[in-house]
């Protein structure tokens, strides 16, 4: 199996974190997109032209980070990150969904290459992102993890965004999770873990690579 993409992508990061949290980072090969983003090979593998995508050993592909993450969780050894208990699983998956549907679009507005207007960026910083944080605050369990009392797929979904908060959202005046005690408590705990520290380092390195690549072009 081979996972295509780069660590700077929080969607790729979610899949990688599932492997890391299960202690299975060696189980899947990692690869750059053959021919680069939107190359014919990329579009053939994933018609949406996005990363990440997973190539299975039989040559078929899976797309969409959340789907890939759940698939890897199901087939790799290690602790289940989608809990076996239905209520617990539903909670964790709902948090992932809130991250994807409401938080990610706001956070993506801080990506310079997307060409958003100043007004759109400002709206993300002052309205949509704070609203999404409020919703997360409303739904998360509280404590050391986002859902229940151990790592789940929900943590894997949010952790990769921490780098983007630090690096990009901050520049637009978003100061961490603000006055939201449950998110703060989560952050205080996870930011001390190797899981998060390593994830920040991977993303930083990936950003440097991207900048070097863009400079060469």
């Amino acid at each position: 199996m081979k996972l295509y993409g780069a660590h700077l992508s929080p969607y790729f990061g979610r899949c990688y974190l599932v492997m890391a949290l299960k202690g299975q980072t060696d189980a899947v090969e990692l690869g750059d997109i053959p021919g680069g983003m939107k190359s014919p090979a990329h579009m053939a593998a994933n018609p949406t032209g996005k990363i990440p995508y997973l190539e299975k050993d039989d040559g078929t592909y899976l797309i969409e980070s959340q789907v890939i993450a759940e698939y890897l969780d199901a087939i790799l050894e290690g602790d289940a990150l989608v809990p076996e208990d239905l209520d617990e699983a539903t909670h964790a998956l709902m948090i992932c969904r809130i991250i994807d549907t409401y938080m990610a679009p706001a956070m993506e507005r801080f990506w310079a290459n997307r060409g958003y207007s100043d007004e759109e960026v400002k709206k993300a910083a002052t309205e949509s992102l704070p609203a999404a944080f409020d919703y997360l605050e409303h739904f998360i369990t509280g404590g050391k993890y986002l859902s229940g009392d151990s790592w789940t797929i929900a943590d894997a979904a949010l952790i990769p965004w921490l780098f983007h908060m630090e690096k990009f959202a901050k520049q637009h005046g978003v100061d961490g999770f603000g006055d939201r005690p449950k998110l703060q408590e989560w952050y205080a705990h996870v930011s001390q873990t190797d899981i998060v520290k390593d994830s920040m380092v991977r993303a930083e390195k990936s950003l440097e690579q991207l900048l070097a690549f863009l400079q060469k072009k």
């Binding site: 949406t48 299975k56 899976l62 797309i63 969409e64 959340q66 789907v67 759940e70 698939y71």
Partner: peptide
């Protein structure tokens, strides 16, 4: 697991794309 992923991808693509 792969069929399960396909089933959930359908919903995901309907919703996201």
């Amino acid at each position: 697991p792969y069929d399960r992923a396909r089933a959930s991808l359908i919903g995901r693509i309907v919703d996201t794309y």
